[in-house]
Amino acid sequence: MSNAHSPVAHHFYTVEQQKDSATIGMWLFLATEILLFGALFTAYAVYRYRFPDAFMVASSRMDWKMGGLNTLFLIISSVTMVFAVSSAEKGRRGGLLGFLAATGFFGTLFLVVKYFEYMHHYHDRDVPGLNFHWTGAPELANGAQMFFFLYFFMTGLHALHMLVGLGLLIWIFITAYQGKYSPEYYNPVEMFGLYWHFVDLVWIFLFPLLYLLGAHLPPGGGGHH
């Protein structure tokens, strides 16, 4: 499509127009993502309204320390992403590569922690559809299963977005290494930054809504074990 020597694709007039188009296009995409996750948050709210106690008890089986650690990882990766974009804007390729690597590092740490969490839940037989087994109060069983289903579905979808993000990040890293970006043209870096921050944003809501509902309960909180 684009002329090999010019960063402006043939159907645009100016760099500015192309950049604006990309920004709005990206935000429209994020709007679809907001509605996508929003539908799940609505489902979450409905079932939490229906099973308030079961959600609280089931949530106390989450390890909030892991979730909190992951929250920090994502926030840090967001900050490094901001610095990556501003390095690209200033044409500092070394800075761009370094901050992208840092972003990827913390993103990967997030997924590693997530993996251990999932394994832990698997051993505790918390996974609906696979091995869910509720040993707590029987009247909470349905609500707890619903909680865990939503937990796995929402965090799973979020983790999928993280994986896609890391894939994109590798691509951005390689192209940055090849020197494709300049202060005139760094749209892909900036657009990827928006995506990455959005993934962070989702987690900021997932963390309190999934991990902390039962944090004020006494230890053991009525769950099994």
Binding site: S78, G193, H197
Partner: peptide, 16 residues
């Protein structure tokens, strides 16, 4: 939720 909305707003306004 209030805290989460506050954090999200900061990210949207500044980082994004």
């Amino acid at each position: 939720l209030a805290i989460a909305i506050g954090k999200a707003t900061l990210i949207i306004l500044y980082f994004m």
